[in-house]
Nucleic acid binder design. Structure first.
Lengths: 343, 343
DNA sequence: AACTCCTACGTCAACGTTGACGTAACCGGC
DNA sequence: GCCGGTTACGTCAACGTTGACGTAGGAGTT
């Protein structure tokens, strides 16, 4: 209520007094429930307007039997990451259309923080949560789910049962990317991945292995670099790969920031037109780089929409069996992935 | 609470019954208030844990005299825009450290939507709001502010009084950018701006005019293109500029998406190494483009921190006069802005 | 005319929590 | 043994709203 005024918020009681009706009648009018005459309805509306009455959803949800707060929690790793931000936006859009608002938080892929945020959301009695699970164990998530909180995981599936999730074709699309590179003649294809505690990293790595196998290539362990959290670390790893006696002629970078780091180093070494790159996850301006970056693009709006649909349905009491929705990703050839090896 | 269990949430009453104390004692223990003995405290804690008790912040805030919901609203234009997303993240971080969560929404620069979202936030009794005002009139914002809701505007100042805001050095930095281009010998410097209803666009345009004047250049009206909302429109406008009989040798692009559109067209016309560009707002990968893009970079974390500090202080009852904080932006020379005109 | 039914209200208690206030037990000092 | 003070509880009402239920009056039916 703050510095200006310090007035008490008008309540239904105040409206009732002004309109000379009972508080219950005000409740009926405000909620468009039957049982209020036309003339009384007008009087109540006028009184509410003149007092600047605003319904109190917290009091209402406390008392109502359904207990809805019309609010969901969204916990992603980092809301400033373009992927997370786009996903949040998609979820928010669909939620808003159902009158549901979004409490958003960044978990930093940290269990403790994720747990604290879950508790904070729970204290505010959100109707459900959409979570990008922090890597490693999911104890706090599982506990929250088992309390009955509707939950949808995005990007990464649960390690426990009974919970919906929405992911993309991590493994299949990774395999396809590697086969694409192999088809151009690349035999030394490196894998640069995010922290290997992340399910997506593991899946993409598995896809990489499958791709190599299917192409009849043998894995060179020293071409695999994981645990690359952020652009800086990815740069270092890329530099190290290029310093090998037999450096890779193509890179499969399994996360957007890793792709950026790799491109940056290739650029500084003037190898960007000679070493092929396919990245997982599209990112803004990938098409404007030199060369434009070939990526596996997730359908972010599609994932967000699906996640929103699922959580809203569960909140509405949908008790059908849990769903693992897989939204297909697509290879977007732009140039960097179409560079053939120097023979 | 959803499909699994359908159990009733345990309340303080349940905990009290199990611990064989009064409900008020449970309240004291849960809130770490004095007046509970050591043995009783242990019993209550044990009971709460065994029942899986979770405090109900909505009930608590309804009853408490301070009425805090420990939640603020954040309404930005588009949460998937990198600038907005980074700002949200900065605000969220600082709020969380004070135990405050963030209800986030995108206004799409639409008054109606902004008004609806404000009402939704108000119904949930948020403690305050941080808003990127939609262009044009600010009636709904002003009304909300006058009700006493603590409010901080970011990126754009209020058209009404008594309200804090945080902006950047739009005009000064724009002038500096134009002077930079002029110093290189550019005499035909175009201005490409976002919708001119936006205060930031106007300020940046004013800075552009000041820069021209200070450099002794005359304004060529046909080199000014505004109302460019989004990358596509910016592309069209850039193409039109380049098709002039006497096209500009330098572009000042006054918003990040506009910069992207301009770079894209310069690239397709192979003019990217001949036409200079300075953009307002940094964006991811600006340093990786060819040429790397010289930009005016806002201190986004600084803006977010300041906004969070202000709103939290106001919520805490700070009644000092309203502040217009200006967080300085910096010119980041990377290459595109250092291209001299062909003589 | 007595009846049922419906509409348009009103009254009351309860949602989960906490502020205000009450009280019994105990402590120290004289 | 009495007083004033403190500690550790408990009781009660209230925050703003709504579900359950009550009731008065009118319309329709028999």
């Amino acid at each position: 209520m703050g510095q200006a005024g310090e007035r008490r918020e008008p309540t239904m009681r105040d409206v009732a007094a002004l309109a000379k009706v009972s508080i219950k009648t005000v409740s009926r009018v405000i909620n468009d429930l039957p049982g209020a005459g036309a003339e009384v309805t007008d009087r109540v509306r006028a009184a509410a307007r003149s007092l600047g009455y605003r319904p109190n959803l917290t009091a209402s949800s406390l008392r109502r039997s359904d207990r809805r707060s019309a609010t969901i929690g969204v916990l992603f790793e980092d809301l400033s990451n373009p992927f997370d931000a786009a996903l949040l936006r998609a979820v928010e859009d669909h939620a808003r259309r159902s009158g549901v608002l979004v409490l958003a938080g960044s978990t930093e892929d940290d269990h403790t923080l994720q747990r604290e945020l879950l508790l904070s959301l729970s204290a505010r009695r959100v109707d459900g949560v959409v979570v990008m699970a922090a890597g490693g164990h999911q104890d706090a998530l599982q506990h929250e789910r088992e309390r009955g909180t509707p939950m949808v995981l995005v990007d990464r599936p649960p390690t426990f049962g009974g919970t919906d999730c929405v992911t993309t074709t991590n493994r299949d699309s990774s395999r396809a990317a590697v086969l694409e590179l192999a088809a151009l003649g690349h035999r030394d294809i490196a894998f640069l991945g995010d922290r290997s505690t992340l399910w997506t990293s593991q899946e993409r790595y598995t896809g990489y292995l499958e791709g190599l196998a299917q192409a009849g290539l043998t894995l060179r362990e020293e071409l695999v670099r994981t645990g690359l959290h952020g652009v800086d670390v990815a740069e270092t790893a890329t530099a190290a790969l290029l310093d090998l006696d037999r450096p890779p002629t193509a890179l499969f970078t399994a996360q957007n920031l890793v792709t950026v780091g790799a491109m940056r180093i290739l650029r500084t070494r003037d190898l960007h037109r000679r070493v092929a790159v396919i990245g997982f996850d599209d990112f803004p301006l990938a098409d404007l780089l030199d060369p434009a970056v070939t990526v596996v693009r997730q359908d972010v709006p599609g994932i967000g929409r699906k996640a929103a649909e699922l959580i809203l349905a569960r909140i509405d009491g949908d008790t059908s069996p849990p769903v693992h929705a897989v939204v297909p990703a697509a290879l977007v050839p732009r140039g960097s992935g179409e560079i053939a090896p120097l023979s």
